[in-house]
Amino acid sequence: MTKMNLQCPMPKLDFDTINLGHGSGGKLTNQLLDSGVFSVLKNDLLDQRHDGAILELSGKTAFTTDSFVISPVFFPGGDIGELAVNGTVNDLAMCGAIPRYLSLAFILEEGLPMTEFWDILVSIRNACAAAGVSVVTGDTKVVERGKGDKVFVNTTGVGTVHPKAEIDIRRIMPGDKIIVSGQLAAHGMAIMSVREGLEFESQIVSDTQPLNHLVKDLLDEFGNNIKLLRDPTRGGVGTALNEMARDRDLGVHLEQRALPIDPQVAGACELLGLDPLYVANEGLFLAVVSGAAAGAMVGAMQRTDTGRHARIIGEFTDQHPKKVVMTSGIGGQRIVNMLIGEQLPRIC
C-alpha cells in the first residue's frame, strides 16, 4: 500500500503556539478544537461533539489502548500522529479484529507550534483513512512548558473480531511455524538515526503502517490456521518470541539466515552494536500458523505490498520449553533472551 500523504493547508489562526489556555476548557479550548481537531478529523460521530460516542457494535469486540511519547515527534517515515493511529489499529488487528473506532487524547506541551500540531492532526486523518477507522471521541490537555515533550498521544480502539479468527496462544502446538510479515528493525533504527547525539546519515525510514487489511485478508483465506498474531514493537522480535515461548510453555527455534533485514538497517545495527532482534518495529507482525498452512500463507503474504518481505523464520518445538534458540548464520546455536532494560532511550 502506498502511504497517503494528503496535504491540507492550515487555516489562518489568532494564535501560532499552544498555550495553557488551550487546555482550560473555555473559549480558547473551543477555538483550538474548532479550528484544529474538529475541522481536520470530521465524521458524523465526532461532529456530534458529545461527551462520548455512542457506537453500534455486535458480536465479539476487541478493545485496546496505547500511549505514544516518541521523540522526536517527526521522524523519517512518519510522525507521532500516524504512529498513534497505526499502533492501536495494529493491536486490534493482532486480536483478529477489524478496527472500527478510535478515541484520541492529546497532552500538549505549552509552546508547541500550532503548525506542528496541525501537521500531526492531518497525519492522523490520513492514517485513519488508510486504516479505515474513525476518531469518534477525544480529549485535549495542555501542560506547562518543561512538563511534557511537545506532544503525547493516547489512542484507544475498538474493533469487531473477524468471524473466522481464533487467536488463542493455547492453540499453538509443536511444529507450528512462525512467519514474520516484514523486514526487522526499521522503525527503531530510523528513530536512532535522528536522535540527538546519535545522528547518522541514512535513508532508513520507519516501517509504520496499518496491518489490518493484510490481516483481514489472511483471516478470510486461512481462518483458524492462524493461531497467534503479535506485533513486536518495543523489545523487538526477540522479546515477543520469548513472551510467546514463556506463555505457551514451548520452545521456539529460530533460523538466523531466514530473518529478513534490509541491508542498510543491518549495517546501522552493526555500526551501533545493536541486535536487530531487539530493535522496535511498527509495521510488521509475527504470525504463528499451523505447519500445513504456513507455506501457502507466506506465499499469499509475499504477493501483497505490506507482506512482500514475509518469511518463515522458525517454529515451535517441545524441546527447550520457554526458551528461544537460534541457529546462527554459520550453523552454531545461541539463546535469544528477552531484552533486559532498554537497548535505547524511548523509541515509541
Binding site: 541457529t327 546462527s328 554459520i330 550453523g331 552454531g332 545461541r334
Partner: peptide, 9 residues
Amino acid sequence: LVKNGILNL
C-alpha cells in the same frame, strides 16, 4: 564466539 555459537562447534 558465543553469539555465533562457535564455542559449541
